[in-house]
Nucleic acid binder design. Sequence first.
DNA 1: ACAGAAACGAGAGCACTGCTCTTGCAATTG
DNA 2: CAATTGCAAGAGCAGTGCTCTCGTTTCTGT
Lengths: 230, 230
Amino acid sequence: MTGEQGVRAAARVAQIEAIKTTARELLIEKGAAGLSLREVAREMGLVSSALYRYFATRDELLTALIFDAYNDLGSAVERAAESNTGASTTVRWRNSCQAVRTWALAHPNEFALLYGTPIPGYNAPTGTIAAATRVATVFGSILNDDRAQKAELADGQGRDVRPFLSVSNLALVMPAVDPSDYLRGVMAWTHIFGHLTFELFGHLVGTVTSPDLAYAAVVDELTEWLRLGE
Amino acid sequence: MTGEQGVRAAARVAQIEAIKTTARELLIEKGAAGLSLREVAREMGLVSSALYRYFATRDELLTALIFDAYNDLGSAVERAAESNTGASTTVRWRNSCQAVRTWALAHPNEFALLYGTPIPGYNAPTGTIAAATRVATVFGSILNDDRAQKAELADGQGRDVRPFLSVSNLALVMPAVDPSDYLRGVMAWTHIFGHLTFELFGHLVGTVTSPDLAYAAVVDELTEWLRLGE
DNA sequence: ACAGAAACGAGAGCACTGCTCTTGCAATTG
DNA sequence: CAATTGCAAGAGCAGTGCTCTCGTTTCTGT
């Protein structure tokens, strides 16, 4: 070992990064379906077989891009939730929702890669799962903080969600939230992504005339529905 | 003309139907990404170039499948909404929601074709639009019938949706619904599809333990939220 | 009824894809 | 310094969508 863990090892991670960068550019231009290994190689002045030293298969490269995209989106939303330290849970929730949409509009093809049709036979590597849950964790934490600073809100009258939600998993993120509130939390989360999926995939054309305002109204409704702040 | 508009014309529509049927089988097996014209031809004992007499391009064949799938889903939901004639709007709404999910689970690859990542550069032919809106129209009609049989519910206190929803379009389907209720209607619609997209694309793994019960609970919440029946 | 036009399926071929295997060169290691 | 390992190049395979040409069959106008 040369103290630097080898010049070659460093070159290798640099090359992997270069490949991902080039692939990401092509992904942005042409979408996941149009991303070709050969074009990535061509763009880099390489021959296609050379890429197989770094990614065993095209799907493996795509998986790496998925991983990075989840983390990119996740950190963007985390930043939005934490900026304005000490802000109300309502403001943090609104900011987080806006951050998701802002990221999605700025990276439509990456959004589609994450939330569109899964690539056939794809099984998320365990590492990806953690990256994928970052946004949901932010949402959960905000709801948790909201409930934590309210002495009594859960009336215990809510629906019993134990038959269909993983209460143990959700409790890890939202220990202060009454389980009867989990369903609304999950629904707010699916609603945000469902709405953005519909918006980006064109299903709101003809119904929504101003996507910006519509999204803001949706977030408002969800805010009320979650009984944030108050 | 032979009174039958020609034997060949009949053979042509039969052939088109046969191609679509074969393509649909392959779509079911391998998903849209794995659907290959050559394999369709092979399966039919034809040579690939022969298919180009009927579909100018692979995307055109996919578009035909999309059209049929929209209509298949649409008629399934319409049937669910109209069965039990005279049923309450609540029951009709629940049945329609269940019909959407039942169809989606039975046709996952077709669902992904409709609501997953759009095929790049795809522009829905105008004919497809009508087919695509059938489900939304059913939902809208149910909400309309609900409000029509309630003398006074709209308090006029609701949000002004004119800045971001196409009130004119929505009024065509739901003339008896107060525009301030449009937003909730649209949100219920996007929620159902957002939830099913998440479920089918694997994003609920780890959160939902019983998809059936979870969906029923979601529909219940939406029913309350829409203030159906009462 | 017959000639011309149109539709059809077969086949060859082009440019492209993901992926494999071999070969020579360069860097790294003992 | 010798041997091993990592690397890029190149050829090649099987597959793709799509185009073009070529006989054959069917329809159509006169």
